[in-house]
């Protein structure tokens, strides 16, 4: 079995055994009903007492053949409102960048926790979209309103 497959099976076992509160993550079902371990859907809960609370933000995680040498690609839905998310939904985060801080030992749990942290602590030095970045730096009230509207769209079901 390939290293990618082996690792993903272990990641799934680990996640099922224990994962951070409020998060979910699971491989998608292929058309024939079998699990496709290389594509996962997951939910990131916004931190309490922040603009992001009360919602669970959906992401898709795609693992390349070369995983864990190469990082997975993680996306929010297109047009997701956040300074470090590209219009396509792709997340700009150093631990997910092979040229930057990605290391094969980084686990799924670390990734989702890193993304949760990014929601409330955007990095103004690596803008990925114009509207959220500009609002975050110059129009705090617009930014906050947009984030709250977005939270309503992804209200946690539990």
């Amino acid at each position: 079995m390939s290293l990618c497959k082996t690792r993903l099976q272990e990641e799934r076992k680990l996640w099922r055994k224990d994962h951070p509160f409020g998060f979910f993550a699971k491989p998608i079902k292929a058309e024939d009903g079998s699990l496709d371990l290389t594509t996962w859907t997951a939910g990131i809960p916004g931190k309490q007492n922040t603009l992001w609370e009360g919602a669970t933000y959906p992401i898709t995680i795609t693992f390349p053949e070369e995983y864990p040498s190469k990082p997975p690609k993680v996306k929010f839905p297109a047009e997701f409102y956040h300074p470090n998310v590209y219009p396509s939904g792709t997340i700009c985060l150093s631990i997910l960048n092979e040229e930057q801080d990605w290391r094969p030992a980084i686990t799924l749990k670390q990734i989702v926790l890193g993304i949760q942290e990014l929601l409330t602590s955007p990095n103004p030095d690596s803008p990925a979209q114009e509207p959220a970045w500009r609002a975050f730096l110059k129009e705090k009230d617009v930014y906050e309103k947009k984030i709250k509207e977005q939270a309503k769209r992804y209200i946690s079901t539990t």
Binding site: L3, T6, R7, E10, E11, L14, P68, P104, A105, T107
Partner: peptide, 8 residues
């Protein structure tokens, strides 16, 4: 006791 790359 597990390899951090394969998690085995």
């Amino acid at each position: 006791l597990k390899d951090p790359i394969s998690l085995q």
